[in-house]
């Protein structure tokens, strides 16, 4: 029983991270029908910036909580900046091009960003400081869920609630929903579509960066390649839930995270990645619209 709880907790942690990244994929796809291949790299860059900032701060004598806050904040700002720039350079010029072009551009940017970090920093794994403090009240259940796990779950939950509030109740959220439904019409009623799209990228990048910082502290090391795997898995989650559907991304992340944890725990951890890819392939073949998505009929 305890093992099951342990696995469930681990599954929820995975799910939280996948959800944070998946939201970025799903929002961008919903609005411009593009798979932002480079999104995983934003997550990775968020983690790297946090690592660098915390490294500098540690050396200059800051401590504990202030490092976490500052590193997180700066990582998020930078991720937003990268997301914004990415869209402006690699995707905006291709807004009206056939679907293949932005996809290839996205793959190109993904490669570019991976190698940019590799060359600017190092190909090796870098140790990530444990930024999340240990809370005393977690002692009793520390063998099932520790402080880092708690922080991850809580932070993700808060972020997702914040996102929902933003989409549902703010003006920019309304603009985003309108643009997703009908870009031309939104433009005609005065929505600045370019800004809305930039905003979508920025929000997605912020969430991904939060995920990156959390994962970095949790796992303890990062390298330039973590974006790829995390990206594919998060994308799987987004597709599983129905790409373009925000609650779907969260649901998909839950399903994927938990099943991965149980499979790794009860069957074998070697084939863990195959599992994720396998799920992805199966959904796309059997039910491309995902769990919560609607099947779109072809207009001939």
């Amino acid at each position: 029983m305890e093992y099951f709880l342990e696995l469930s907790c681990s599954g929820l942690v995975r799910a939280s991270i996948y959800a944070l990244i998946a939201l970025g994929y799903t929002m961008v796809y919903g609005i411009i029908q593009l798979i932002n291949f480079a999104h995983g790299e934003i997550y990775m860059i968020g983690a790297f910036v946090a690592l660098i900032v915390s490294g500098v701060l540690t050396i200059y004598g800051f401590s504990g909580f202030s490092i976490l806050v500052l590193a997180g904040l700066i990582a998020v700002i930078y991720a937003a900046a990268y997301g914004y720039t990415l869209e402006k350079i690699a995707y905006r010029p291709l807004r009206n091009a056939p679907r293949l072009s932005p996809l290839i551009s996205a793959i190109g940017m993904s490669l570019f960003l991976q190698n940019y970090v590799l060359l600017a920093q190092t190909p090796d794994f870098l140790p990530f400081p444990a930024l999340i403090p240990d809370f005393a009240f977690m002692e009793p259940i520390a063998h099932i869920m520790g402080s880092p796990e708690l922080v991850i779950l809580v932070t993700s939950a808060i972020s997702m609630v914040a996102l929902t509030v933003l989409i549902k109740y703010t003006r920019i959220g309304k603009a985003m929903r309108a643009t997703q439904q009908d870009m031309t019409m939104a433009r005609l009623v005065g929505v600045n579509v370019d800004n809305v799209i930039s905003m979508t990228f920025i929000i997605g990048s912020v969430l991904a960066a939060i995920g990156g910082v959390l994962v970095g502290s949790y796992i303890g090391q990062i390298n330039f390649y973590i974006g790829f795997m995390a990206g594919v898995k998060a994308f799987t989650a987004a597709v599983l839930g129905g790409i373009g559907n925000i609650p779907g991304a969260v649901l998909g992340a839950l399903v994927l995270g938990l099943t991965e944890a149980y499979a790794a725990g009860y069957i074998s951890s070697a084939y863990e990645d195959v599992f994720a890819f396998g799920v992805l392939v199966l959904i796309l073949i059997l039910r491309p619209s995902g769990l919560l998505g609607k099947a779109v009929k072809l207009k001939v």
Partner: peptide, 26 residues
């Protein structure tokens, strides 16, 4: 994957490629 188009096709084939490598590795 006959029925898949565009983006979805790309992702599935990406999945296939990755699965192949992992299977070989393990």
């Amino acid at each position: 994957i006959l029925r898949l188009r565009g983006d979805y096709l790309a992702i599935v084939t990406l999945g296939f490629g990755s699965i192949a490598k992992i299977v070989i590795e393990n």
